[in-house]
Write a protein that binds this DNA or RNA. Structure first.
Length: 437
DNA sequence: TTTTGAGTTGTTCGA
DNA sequence: GTCGAACAACTCAAA
């Protein structure tokens, strides 16, 4: 071990890349030899029910890529397995740590974890420095004139764009400083099997989107059978792409896609400023809706057996691939909440478990939007008609045929509930519940 | 303080 | 087939 040399440690979490990485840039310029570490966090892994976890496979592949790049510079990635606070005690034994660098991580669990590590490092007189990297503007950087947070998207977006300039999107030119990596023999990257998981042969989307897709994005993005969306959500989730570079590309090619990137930061800000959204409605009045919460119906929704082909197609796509087209996410969410009157939190949890690109803030924001309980949400009487949506966005049934090939056969189930009946039941239920206060 | 304009993604009904 | 209104008022943001 290089016990004698003091080192700067950079701890990767949701920023699994070497290029244009803020914390890495500052570490490399610190004058200390830089060692990159990653922790397979058992607090998270132990909660995973499925031994074939797509997100873990994605992370593992991203780390392999990082490690391969490091090897070209005579360096190596050091992976650990355990509870972060225990792991860090080992890191301090393995290296003569002088400073620790990481990028800001905003979710409630991450905040708590980082505070714990910060205290541990502080007790050893080690500085823990963190940087903005995951977003263009953080939770406190886009506010109303009175300093309070926005709760409506459009004025937030206007303010966001009005204060955005080239400096915010400048890349960190890390490559110039790669000679600062601590030279070390290649270390063994912990295999998935060593942690009790399986490496499945999954094909992930690439971490780039063509300008040609963005140019047509506004007119084609809503058609789930088309290859017309960026497919970058999983890369944004794990930081295998730089938000600064994406925002630059977005602004040059599509105002609508730019908005999507801003929605991401809007919902991150909302989760941070209004943490109660994680456990209940943004608008507390909506906590009084008497959900039917029929478990058999929920089960049918989960596995794509509702008898509504567009809903079933989406749910099956999710189970088969860990992804669902955005338009279809809205349709299945509206259906669960409004047609079946099942608590949006059940749907949120199902998505959280299965979406490769799962992001607490966006997932929660999307579900609350569908349930009409969120900030700036759809009005409650706005109820998607699955047949109408199919006519508009999958008129030749291409998407449906792909995921529900048997939909025109006798084996395909009857609709779980009749549309007009469900619509009226929803309107009446919401109306009554919201009147009561 | 009051006023004004506006608010991601829809559906249905009746003229 | 097309179009506007109703759905139901409400809250936010800014002048």
């Amino acid at each position: 071990m290089n016990k004698l040399n003091s080192a700067a440690i950079i701890w990767l979490r949701r920023d699994l890349r070497l290029s244009d990485n803020a914390a890495l840039y500052h570490a490399l310029r610190s004058g200390l030899p830089v060692q990159i570490i990653f922790i397979f966090d058992t607090d998270i892994l132990n909660q995973l029910e499925n031994k074939n976890d797509r997100r873990l496979v994605f992370i593992h592949r991203a780390l392999q890529t990082v490690n391969d790049q490091l090897k070209q510079h005579g360096a190596t990635l050091h992976t650990y397995y355990g509870k972060p606070v225990d792991v860090w005690k080992n890191v301090l034994k393995d290296y003569n740590v002088e400073k620790v660098f990481a990028n800001h991580d905003y979710e409630p669990y991450a905040q708590q974890r980082d505070n714990e590590i910060k205290n541990l490092l502080q007790s050893h007189s080690i500085l823990f420095e963190t940087y903005k990297d995951q977003v263009v503007f953080e939770k406190d950087e886009v506010c109303k004139a009175d300093g309070l947070p926005y709760t409506v998207f459009t004025p937030y977006k206007n303010k966001y764009l009005s204060q955005l300039n080239a400096a915010h999107l400048k890349s960190y030119d890390n490559e110039k400083y790669f000679s600062a990596f601590l030279k070390q023999e290649a270390k063994h990257l912990i295999a998935l099997s060593e942690m009790g998981f399986i490496e499945d042969n999954i094909l992930f989307p690439k971490n780039k989107v063509d300008n040609s897709i963005l140019k047509k994005y506004e007119t084609t993005r809503d058609f789930p059978a088309m290859d017309a969306t960026s497919r970058l959500s999983v890369h944004l989730r794990f930081g295998t792409v730089s938000i600064r570079q994406l925002m630059m590309q977005a602004m040059e090619n599509s105002a609508v896609w730019t908005n999507e990137l801003i929605w991401r930061e809007f919902y991150m800000m909302i989760l941070y400023k209004f943490p109660h959204v994680a456990t209940g409605a943004f608008k507390p009045r909506y906590n009084t809706i008497p959900w039917r919460n029929n478990e058999q119906e929920f089960e049918k929704w989960c596995h794509g057996n509702t008898g509504y082909p567009i809903v079933d197609a989406g749910m099956r796509e999710l189970l088969a691939t860990g992804f669902m087209h955005n338009r279809v996410r809205m349709i299945v969410a509206s259906f669960l909440v409004k047609h079946l009157l099942i608590d949006w939190k059940w749907g949120e949890a199902w998505f959280a478990k299965h979406l490769l690109d799962f992001e607490l803030s966006s997932n929660n924001g999307g579900w609350q939007w569908a349930a009409s309980s969120g900030c700036d949400a759809a009005p409650y009487f706005r109820i998607f008609n699955p047949y109408e949506q199919t006519k508009r966005f999958d008129s030749n049934l291409e998407y449906i045929k792909k995921w529900v090939p048997e939909f025109q056969e006798l084996t395909y189930p009857q609709p779980i509930v009749e549309h007009t009946f469900a619509r009226n039941r929803c309107l009446a239920t919401y109306k009554l519940a919201l009147q009561e206060k």
